[in-house]
Structure formats: C-alpha cells, structure tokens
C-alpha cells in the first residue's frame, strides 16, 4: 500500500502528543523546553506533508519561517532559564512558583 497524507498526519499527531505529554508530566524546565521543540517539529511535519500532497510550496516556506523563529525562541528561552537559575539555583518548575524574578 502506498503512503498517503494520513500516515504522515498520524505520525505528526503522535509526535505532538508525546511533546504535550512531556510538557504536562515532566518537571525539569529543560526537558519541558525540549518537549516544546518536539511539538514544533510535529507541526512542521504536518505542514510539509500538506504541502507535498496539495501541490503548493507555501507550506514549506512556512516551515522555513517556523524553524527560524524556533531558533530565535530557543536562544531567548535558554537565556531566560539561565537567568532564572542564577537567581533560584534550580531548574525545577516547583521551585519556580513566584512571579517575581
């Protein structure tokens, strides 16, 4: 049987749910951040699959922008995590319960 759009969508859905599970269940700030990357990658896979099976390249351009913005977001987020760690000496979400830095 040939691989259709739905196969890629199922993989994307499962990868997204794994990322969501990581965000919900894990309590290490860095692992939560990696799970966010998993969710972004799942969305990328769905967009590329749509682009392939609908005959437009626009989905791939969108993925290009997502990758760029994700790189910027990772740099900023990790800088924030390092700044938080300097203040609280912990990267565990339960130790970071206050809004003030």
């Amino acid at each position: 049987m040939t691989i259709g759009l739905e196969h890629y969508l199922v993989v994307s859905l499962l990868l997204f749910s794994l990322g969501l599970l990581g965000v919900v269940a894990r309590r290490n700030l860095l692992v939560i951040y990696m799970s966010l990357e998993l969710m972004l990658n799942a969305a990328n896979l769905a967009l590329v699959a749509f682009s392939r099976f609908n005959g437009h390249l626009d989905g791939q351009v969108m993925v290009f922008f997502i990758i760029t913005v994700a790189a910027a977001e990772v740099a900023l987020g990790l800088a924030l995590i390092v700044a938080l760690y300097r203040k609280h000496r912990s990267a565990h979400v339960e130790d970071l319960a206050t809004l003030k830095l």
């Binding site: 040939t2 969508l9 609908n54």
Partner: peptide, 9 residues
Amino acid sequence: QPTGVASAP
C-alpha cells in the same frame, strides 16, 4: 479522510 495520493502533484 484525506485523499492525497503519494505521487499525485
């Protein structure tokens, strides 16, 4: 029910 065929476009 996506109807994409693997080698269509």
